[in-house]
Structure formats: structure tokens, C-alpha cells
């Protein structure tokens, strides 16, 4: 008797309140039907063994699914996760870099800042990933449980069932033409770091010396005023870069249009770069005299050095532009 009570309790406690009594009554009469008049505990166990695990019996009675996210939503769920988690993590990391750079007071060594950013960054990326993962999963688990339609077919990302027309919206990406997500996130990160450094160059880039056992910033490389005089065009160039990254993200592969846009953004950023670098007042005079003292020779910022740097820059730009067009022209 006792075992039967416990068995029924084990089943019904998993069921909604309103069904419990009726199902309990039916189960009891069924189990007793299986038993002889004066039954022993062994016989009870045998009968309950035939009834099977209370969990699976209860799940049979429930309409609720026994999984978190079923086949109907699983593909949409995974696709969204793959899209949103890296974006959230990258944005969090960029914000972290920006925060650290802009609140920088010039007292700490650059290496310490980098270490802090890496340490905090790993933590931040982990926690943001877990957060987004949790919320997306929660939303889908709720949708799974509130979806009253009995349809079983998987949904596409537009939350409709698949039709052949959907294929029209998907680009056919040839091997070698795809723009990887990691390159997109890498570019964004690069832009963020560049922006942060540009506005803090005077406190970050320069000569560090060990004074009284501590690494200290002695002389900045660049001339603050000259560097910052260009802030407007630098911002424009950054804007163009970000726009191109977003455009590449949307298109997802190298096309002629992407290659042309890529060329355009190189023209803009190169113009800005050359403008800034060809200014002979860019390098801080203190920095030059420091080098002179260090190497015991007189150094002059010759136009040939500047030309050399600009030449290298242009070579790398041309290579990237050509690569873009080469990938865009892959057709088999």
C-alpha cells in the first residue's frame, strides 16, 4: 500500500494541480487491478515495474515539452547565438578599451594599462557572453512553452516556415570570397584601439625610463597640438572605416562593390595619414633631442624618412586594394 502511495505521489507531483486527483484515482485503480486480492510487497514492486518510471509516466501526461528548446526553434536559436554573442563580446571589449584609455591620467605605464585591459577584457568577454547566452536561451525557452501551434517544422530566421523563395535571399558564397566574422571584429577592435591611442598619444607613446625602479613616461613622441589639429578629418576617416566594416558585415563576401568601397576608404584614410605625417612639426622636438643624446649624433627629420614611411603605407594599401579586387573577381 505504502509503495503505491509513494509511486502515485511521484507521478502526480509533476502534474498540474487540476489533473492530479483524477489521475491519482485512475492510477490507483489500475495498479490495484494488476494485483491479486491479498498482495505482497514483491507483487507490488512487480506491478509498479510494469508501470515504468514515474518521470516518464508523468511526462506522458504533460503537454509541456521535456526539452528546453525543441527542433522547431533550435536552428533559429543557434543562428542568433552565433550572431549576437560575438557582437556583444566585441562591443563590450571596445567599450572597455575606450573607458581605460580616456580615463588615463598619464601616470601609469602603458604596459600596465595593456595588462589591465587584457585581464579585465577576458573577464568582461566571458561575463557578457554568459549573460547574452542566458537571456537568449531564456527567451527561446519561453517561446517554446508558449507556442500553442502544434506545428513541428523548423522555422527559418525570419520565424516563418521554409519555402524555396527563401533561397533568393541567401547569397551563394564561393570559396575564398567570404569575409570572415573574425576579420570584421578584428577591424572594429583595431579602429577602437587606434581611436583611443590617437586621442591619448601624448600620454601613451613616447620614451619610458626607469626612474627609481619605476617605469616612467619621460617624453612624448608626438607634438600634441599638431596631432590634435587634425581631429576633424581623423574622425571622418574613422567614420568611413566603421561604415565600411558594417557594410562588409552585411554583404558577407567580396564583391566588386565591396572592393570599390574598400578602395575609397583607403583613399580617405591615406589622405589623412599623409596629411598628418608630412607635417614636419609632428614629432616633438624634445623627443628628437632625447634620441640625439641617446645615440650621440644629430638627427634631423629628413623628408626622405617621411617619404619612406608614406611609401611603405601606400604599398600596403595598394596590396590590400588589389587583394580586394582579386577576391571579388573569383568566379568559380
Amino acid at each position: 500500500m505504502h509503495l503505491i502511495d509513494v509511486y502515485i505521489q511521484e507521478v502526480t507531483r509533476r502534474l498540474p494541480e487540476k489533473n492530479r486527483q483524477d489521475i491519482a484515482l485512475e492510477l490507483r485503480s489500475t495498479i490495484e487491478d494488476m494485483l491479486p486480492e491479498n498482495y505482497t510487497e514483491v507483487e507490488v514492486k512487480e506491478a509498479l515495474g510494469k508501470m515504468g518510471s514515474p518521470v516518464s509516466l508523468a511526462s506522458g501526461y504533460l503537454d509541456r515539452p521535456m526539452h528546453l528548446i525543441g527542433p522547431r526553434y533550435f536552428d533559429v536559436y543557434v543562428t542568433l547565438l552565433k550572431m549576437i554573442v560575438p557582437i556583444a563580446a566585441t562591443i563590450a571589449f571596445i567599450i572597455l578599451i575606450a573607458e581605460n584609455m580616456f580615463s588615463y591620467n598619464g601616470e601609469e605605464a602603458l604596459i600596465n594599462i595593456i595588462l589591465t585591459i587584457v585581464g579585465k577584457g577576458i573577464w568582461e568577454i566571458l561575463s557578457i557572453s554568459i549573460h547574452t547566452f542566458f537571456w537568449i536561451t531564456l527567451v527561446f525557452a519561453i517561446i517554446e512553452r508558449t507556442d500553442t501551434s502544434k506545428e513541428k517544422l523548423p522555422l527559418t530566421t525570419s520565424l516563418k516556415e521554409w519555402t524555396p523563395d527563401d533561397l533568393n535571399n541567401i547569397p551563394y558564397i564561393l570559396k575564398g570570397k567570404e569575409i570572415s566574422k573574425s576579420s570584421i571584429f578584428g577591424s572594429l577592435l583595431g579602429i577602437a584601439i587606434f581611436t583611443a591611442i590617437y586621442f591619448n598619444a601624448v600620454q601613451l607613446i613616447g620614451v619610458y625610463e626607469k626612474i627609481q625602479g619605476k617605469l616612467q613616461f619621460v617624453t612624448p613622441t608626438f607634438n600634441q597640438e599638431v596631432l590634435h589639429a587634425y581631429w576633424l578629418i581623423v574622425l571622418i576617416a574613422i567614420g568611413v572605416e566603421v561604415a565600411l566594416v558594417c557594410y562588409k558585415f552585411v554583404i558577407g563576401q567580396w564583391t566588386r562593390k565591396v572592393a570599390i568601397m574598400n578602395t575609397l576608404r583607403h583613399v580617405v584614410s591615406s589622405t589623412v595619414f599623409i596629411l598628418i605625417f608630412s607635417n614636419t612639426n609632428l614629432i616633438n622636438p624634445d623627443f628628437i633631442s632625447y634620441l640625439e643624446r641617446l645615440f650621440n649624433t644629430s638627427i634631423e627629420i629628413k623628408s626622405s624618412i617621411i617619404l619612406g614611411v608614406i611609401f611603405l603605407w601606400i604599398v600596403s594599401v595598394v596590396i590590400d586594394v588589389i587583394q580586394g579586387f582579386r577576391k571579388a573577381n573569383i568566379s568559380k
Binding site: 489521475i23 485512475e26 489500475t30 508501470m51 515504468g52 518510471s53 509516466l57 506522458g60 501526461y61
Partner: peptide, 11 residues
Amino acid sequence: IDQSTLYPLLR
């Protein structure tokens, strides 16, 4: 027939 399938099926 598995009894744990039958009773829920009836319901």
C-alpha cells in the same frame, strides 16, 4: 504495450 505510454495516451 508499454503501460506508461498507454494511460497518458487514453487521456
